[in-house]
Design a protein around this nucleic acid. Structure first.
Length: 451
DNA sequence: GCATGATCATGC
DNA sequence: GCATGATCATGC
């Protein structure tokens, strides 16, 4: 997927996620008006919710096409019902039906070039609560997310697909049963079996029309996994609520607002979160936004490529330290172009700079200021030169003359390992001390702190 | 006092 | 065991 398509993909997902905890009827989709104005069936009854959702919310015409629904974006839309158990939990009500099997075509496919993979690699799943007394616009949507079955369960899905294909190729499509396979099944499709018999390529015997599906048990599993991922994102929901009337930047600043002027110890107590180590202020800062774990982020942050960084100022208003980035991977950098490099990706991020300050040595740091920052293109161009030089040195196996802080006004290379025995493989086949890029202390001071 | 090299706690 | 997001310790 190219960058533009990825952006479109993300936009669709963010748009779809607005449905969570709501109904289609309560949303302002431009398409809901069109559906009403042309008097189309808003639909009720079995099987129609998916079609209604497609039209009224996403503006997609119902089709039998073999391409993913959002083509050219490789994303397929599926609405699937949930039922409530006696204990109140929700679980998948039924299997998720995918594309109809064309026996002749599937016999000629490999898994890699299969129609199944093409159409169902990424599925935008909209889980709604089944309630036969409610009309489609009023059905409650519980959970929305993307399921990539090949990332989650590649081996089993592929094996199941091969099992189904093998029956067709041996001329026994009429013997296919949903029990043959584990996750991906072949379920019957059509009103009654008698009227839905079709031909198969290697036998004159007619076989039942079937469709590929995620079997009921797998559908339940998918829901459970998606739900547990959401549970870990309660903080994200809180953030999104906070964001409703603001843009992302205002929302982030609003989350820091109550802690400005507080010491790090006071913030820890308020958050009921206590950590040690050199990254302590970084953990606390991320916790304020709501990231529960060190590596956790929010979808909207990932999409916009936003990073949180901390800066500490001493009583003279100056920072003591430079700012580090990811380790340089010696083997990778030699094969990369600047615009594909790790450093380029990091430097073109939007940064949330969390600035702490203390009034004297030994005192606790106080949260002073929070601001969004990104590097100017002019400065990025300077970093490109330093990166090229670093790449060049790695290519020629010189690990002792990387650009120093005194050589460049913006960025330099320095060791960054557990200790001096912490090594990384080199393209020459040896090992060298781990290194990473640092933004210069003075550069941070002038361009971030004093701007 | 600052640049440079060395090292640390944490989470997965 | 390793990457992360840093800070510490030193020597000029």
């Amino acid at each position: 997927m190219d960058e533009n398509k990825e952006r479109q993909f993300d936009k669709i997902v963010v748009f779809a996620m607005k449905l969570e905890g709501s109904t289609v009827g309560k949303q302002n989709s431009p398409y809901s008006i069109i559906v009403e104005s042309v008097g189309e069936e808003t639909g009720s009854g079995k099987g129609s919710f998916g079609q209604y959702l497609e039209k009224a919310y996403f503006g997609i015409r119902t089709n039998n096409e073999s391409r993913p629904d959002f083509w050219p974006i490789p994303l397929e839309l599926k609405a699937s019902p949930l039922k409530r158990l006696k204990n109140g939990d929700l679980t998948a009500k039924e299997r998720i039906v995918l594309n109809i099997i064309n026996y002749r075509e599937m016999a000629g496919e490999t898994f890699e070039n299969s129609h199944f993979k093409f159409k169902n690699e990424s599925i935008l799943l909209v889980w709604y609560v089944h309630d036969k007394n409610l009309e489609n616009p009023d059905k409650e949507i519980d959970l929305v997310g993307v399921w990539k079955c090949l990332e989650e369960d590649f081996e089993q899905i592929k094996q199941d697909w091969e099992t189904i294909k093998a029956k067709i190729c041996s001329g026994h499509a009429e013997d296919i049963s949903e029990g043959d396979t584990f996750l991906l099944g072949a379920c019957t499709k059509g009103s009654t079996a008698a009227t839905s018999l079709v031909q198969q390529p290697f036998s004159p015997v007619l076989a039942k029309q079937r469709a590929l599906c995620f079997k009921h048990g797998y559908a339940s599993h998918i829901y459970d996994v998606m739900q547990s991922r959401r549970a870990r994102k309660d903080s994200e929901i809180r953030f999104m609520a906070n964001k409703k009337e603001r843009n992302l930047e205002q929302a982030v600043l609003a989350m820091f607002e109550p802690y400005i002027g507080k010491t790090s110890a006071q913030i820890e107590d308020a958050l009921d979160y206590h950590v040690g180590g050199k990254s302590r202020l970084a953990y606390i800062s991320r916790r304020i936004i709501g990231f529960s774990k060190k590596n956790e982020s929010f979808y909207e942050f990932d999409v916009a490529n936003i990073q949180v960084k901390t800066i500490r100022l001493e009583k003279n208003g100056k920072n003591r330290e430079s700012m580090s980035f990811r380790n340089v991977n010696f083997c990778e950098i030699v094969g990369q172009d600047w615009e594909d490099s790790d450093l380029y990706e990091e430097l073109t991020s939007k940064f949330i700079m969390v600035i702490f300050r203390r009034e004297s040595d030994g005192m606790d740091y106080v949260l002073d200021n929070v601001r969004f920052w990104n590097m100017s293109q002019k400065d990025i161009d300077v970093c490109e030169e330093v990166w090229e030089k670093t790449k060049y040195l790695v290519m020629y196996g010189d690990y002792n003359h990387f650009p120093k802080e005194s050589e460049n006004p913006i960025i330099h290379v320095r060791p960054k390992g557990k200790n001096s025995e912490d090594l990384m493989a080199t393209p020459q086949g040896g090992f060298e001390k781990k290194k990473c890029f640092f933004l210069n202390r003075e550069y941070i001071l002038q361009n971030v702190v004093e701007k």
